[in-house]
Design a binder for these strands. Structure first.
Lengths: 349, 349
DNA sequence: CTGAAAGCGCTTACAG
DNA sequence: CTGAAAGCGCTTACAG
């Protein structure tokens, strides 16, 4: 099977099939199948002969035929809302690694928070007869999830739950974690703590609730600004808050992209973080410890979530009748300088 | 097809097949196939009846059967080296969108620069009979690419070329662009311009060559430090350069993760960018315009690359005998403050 | 425009 | 341990 080397593709030399190998090795195709898949015992001598023949002729079993025969693809659908967000990029990487370790392929979709695209892809998943789906669902319209589950395909929601009660889900303790993060600022003496995030997304509603509970418990007023999950959104939300609340001395930010924007807004106004403004951010990107001052964050255990989701998916594939489970994993506070006790200025002494 | 709502999966009610629809609509399965695929004309009345029946019974044609029959999956393999790098995250998003628009699925793999994993996945691609592969290859050992192409599967290299001359490739003009970026610093009067990047990766060798040509043309000494594509790597490389060259007044950085680290190193030493140190960075992440001072960058046309790669792949699928093409797209200099003319300090006047 | 029939390349009871 | 045979669910020449 030499390469032409001239730059053109080779003639489409007919692919070698299981029957070819069988004939050449002097056995039946059933035996070749058993050797290749390792599903059943085959005598050692036959095994070696078949393997050698297959190797020699570069036999690549057709996954297409295998899939049709088995009625299932060796594939899991992975749908995320925004692969350009480091949170989901890490999640996709972790899911892919977990699936790769199990010999399973990833059918990938970036929904971009587009419910129509999500529905369309979920139909693709049905047509492709995937083993299951891991999905970080768009906020609206997940009836396509139910239709897929009606067909018997397991669905595990990750990051955000889906409304269908039959789906398993893996989420973090957003509200509790955000409350703890907010509490750090309360404990360091801040009295005017603002919240920046997005509405209409489950994770952010939870985080907002956590923030509210912490400030209200401390007898403080909630101060909130919502925008979208972008650097620009964070910048604008921070400006809004700073304009309306000159006495703001703490800031809780609900998303990593927004955090970049909010920090830029603070710098643009010459407001020093941890000195005049305590900051706690949700998500722990690689640069969090490198900014000045290092950022206190709420780190989500992304690898843990991904592994839990894949584990759960395979448990359900093994036993479809399992009762659905809501798995909640704990976030971890990464306490760094940005939330530290406020230095009193000389005239406050 | 009601959901149980109790939390258990439904009984695995047998899936409706093409024969079921055919029988129910009073036609042959061939006709149903023609209606569903739209491949051949069918009388309007029959068409409507079939469509209504299919709809009513929630018929989802098996892609598995279709694939086997056609000998190809409606899928393209996408292999990238690091999905956690914003460069590749954007690329994967763009590729996925281009493929989605063509009704094609993405089989996703994050190789993590692991040649063994890459080879293993390329065999999966062969087994899955994908239409083609778009790959950002690992530096070493792409013989698996040749084996896949021997089987007649088109491969388009993106970002970095592969050694097999039969593959198409889409890359940027790394060397020229880096030379232009370096020239900006030369023009602003810098005389000691350092380069930070990684060795043994094609893109970075090109960029290094571009940097070298620009400094040598200006009669300056090349000053280089290599490390890996991480924030930490960039930090360490910058420290090395600063330790060894106290008179360093310009810095060219070859990768976005390394840029974060290098900027942190500068800040840690109190070195003001654009004042004492001109900086130009390869890759144009969303935060480039938001750092202080805004960063001059070499922006790669990622969407353009992705679209060119997918276009090229489909051209080759349509005509396998096309001579291979090396497509080179131009980078765009984003000139911002970090490369600006150096302010002379008072005692230099 | 439509149907009967073959076949894509495997896997897996079934029988020995 | 091994083989003959059926069948997974489509699509597509072929014939009409």
């Amino acid at each position: 099977m030499p390469s032409s080397g001239i730059g053109f593709m080779n003639p489409p030399s007919r692919r070698v099939r299981i029957d070819d190998i069988a004939k050449l090795a002097g056995v039946s195709s059933a035996t070749v199948s058993r050797v290749i898949s390792g599903a059943r015992p085959v005598s050692e001598s036959t095994r070696e002969r078949v393997l050698a023949t297959a190797q020699h002729f570069g036999y690549q079993p057709s996954q297409l035929a295998r899939n049709l025969r088995r009625g299932r693809a060796a594939t899991v659908g992975v749908l995320v809302s925004d692969i350009e967000n480091a949170h989901f990029a890490t999640m996709v990487r972790a899911i892919e690694e977990a699936l790769y370790a199990r010999g399973t392929r990833v059918l990938f979709c970036n929904t971009g928070e587009d419910t129509a695209k999500q529905s369309s892809y979920l139909e693709v998943m049905a047509a492709e007869r995937v083993m299951g789906v891991v999905i970080s669902p768009t906020p609206e319209g997940d009836s396509a999830v139910s239709r897929l589950m009606d067909l018997g395909t397991p669905v595990v929601a990750i990051d955000r739950p889906v409304s269908d009660p039959r789906a398993d889900s893996v989420v973090t303790d957003n509200a509790v974690a955000m409350a703890k993060g907010t509490q750090l600022l309360v404990d360091s003496g801040r009295r005017h703590i603002g919240w920046i995030g997005r509405d209409s997304v489950w994770t952010n509603s939870e985080r907002l609730a956590g923030y509210r509970s912490a400030v209200e418990l401390a007898g403080l007023q909630p101060i909130t600004a919502v925008s979208d999950f972008t650097v620009q959104g964070g910048y604008l939300a921070a400006e809004m808050l700073l304009d309306d609340h000159p006495d703001l001395d703490g800031l809780v930010i609900s998303n990593n992209h927004m955090t970049i924007g909010a920090l830029q807004a603070l710098r643009a106004r010459g407001i020093l973080v941890s000195d005049r403004m305590g900051v706690v951010a949700f998500d722990d990107p690689p640069w969090a410890s490198l900014v000045d001052p290092p950022l206190t964050t709420v780190a989500q255990p992304i690898w843990g979530m991904a592994n839990a989701a894949v584990d759960r998916l395979f448990m359900r594939i093994a036993d479809i009748s399992l009762p659905p489970e809501q798995i909640c994993v704990e976030c971890q506070l990464q306490i760094r300088a940005s939330s530290q006790i406020r230095r009193k200025s000389p005239n406050e002494e």
